[in-house]
Design a protein around this nucleic acid. Structure first.
Lengths: 143, 143
DNA sequence: CAGCATCCAGCTTGATACTG
DNA sequence: CAGTATCAAGCTGGATGCTG
C-alpha cells in the first residue's frame, strides 16, 4: 500500500499521455513527489521568489531586498530547492567580489505565470477578503 | 515605515481600479494582509482543500479522506481560515448525527481555478522536475 | 459524524557569527 | 557580495481524549 513508484490509483484501460501524467502524479496522495514540489512552489518563500524572478534575473541581495522579510538562510534554502526542481537557474561569475544571478528556467517561467495569475487575483480581491474577515470576526470569536 | 494601512509604494498620478488594487495590496511587502491570505490559499493544506472542493461540496470526513495525510486538527484549522477569508462556505444541518457540508464560494471558485491550473501544470511536468532533481543530486551533494 | 482542548515532539525559522 | 555553520526558540502539526 505504500509502494515506491509514483502514487497511482487507476482502474484499467488505455490512457493518453496527458491523463497519464495527471494520474501518475497526484498531489492528493500523501507520498507523491508532486506534493513536495508543489510545496516548494507555493511555499511562503518559494512563491515570492518565483514571483520576483518573473520580472527578470536578480542577484542574491536584490532578491533579499525585494522579498521583504526573508532571511539570508531561508532565501538560500529556497533558491536551492527551486534550482533542484529545475525552475531556477543559477549563474555564477567567478569575479571578485562574486556576482551571482538567478533567473527562471523556461519551465520555471511557465510555473511562475500560473502562480502570478493566482497572486494577482488574490491581491485584486483583497477588499472582498477583508470584508469577509470582518464579518466573520464580528459574528463569532472576538477571541 | 511600518504603517497600518495596506502597504503601498506609488509615485503619483491617477490610477485605475485595477491598478489600485494591485498596488494597494502587495504580497512582497512583509506587513501586507494579502501575504497572509496568499499563505492560506497556497499553504500545504489550503491548496489541497481548495482543490478538493473544486469538484463539489464535501463533508468534513470526506475531505479528510480525500486529502491524504491531513489531520483532523489541521483540516479544521484550514477550513476556518478559508471560511474566514470568504473562500469556503460552511453549511451545517442541525440533524443528528450532524451533517456539515463545505463548498466553495464564488470567490473561492475563482481562486481554486487559478490554483488548479498551477497544480495540474506541476503534476504534468513532474517528469521534468524529477529529471532535474536527479541531475542536481548527481552533480553536487549526494548528501 | 463533526468537531474542540490539551499536550508535546520536532521541524522550521531567525539571529548571529564566520568564510571565500 | 554571496553565501555556510551553528544554535536557541517558537510555531506546526500529530496523537489523544472528550463533547454534542
Amino acid at each position: 500500500m505504500d509502494d515506491i513508484s509514483p502514487s497511482v490509483e487507476r482502474t484499467a484501460g488505455p490512457r493518453t499521455d496527458a491523463e497519464d501524467a495527471e494520474l501518475a502524479f497526484n498531489v492528493f496522495a500523501k507520498s507523491c513527489p508532486s506534493r513536495r514540489t508543489l510545496e516548494d512552489v507555493t511555499g511562503r518563500w518559494g512563491s515570492l521568489t518565483l514571483g520576483a524572478l518573473h520580472e527578470g534575473s536578480l542577484r542574491f541581495n536584490e532578491l533579499r531586498r525585494r522579498i521583504d522579510g526573508v532571511s539570508e538562510k531561508m532565501l538560500s534554502q529556497t533558491l536551492h530547492s527551486l534550482e533542484r526542481d529545475g525552475l531556477v537557474h543559477r549563474e555564477a561569475q567567478p569575479t571578485n567580489p562574486p556576482r551571482v544571478d538567478y533567473e527562471l528556467t523556461p519551465l520555471g517561467r511557465e510555473v511562475a505565470e500560473r502562480l502570478l495569475s493566482l497572486i494577482h487575483f488574490v491581491e485584486a480581491r483583497m477588499p472582498s477578503v477583508l470584508d469577509a474577515q470582518q464579518s466573520y470576526d464580528a459574528a463569532r470569536g472576538a477571541r
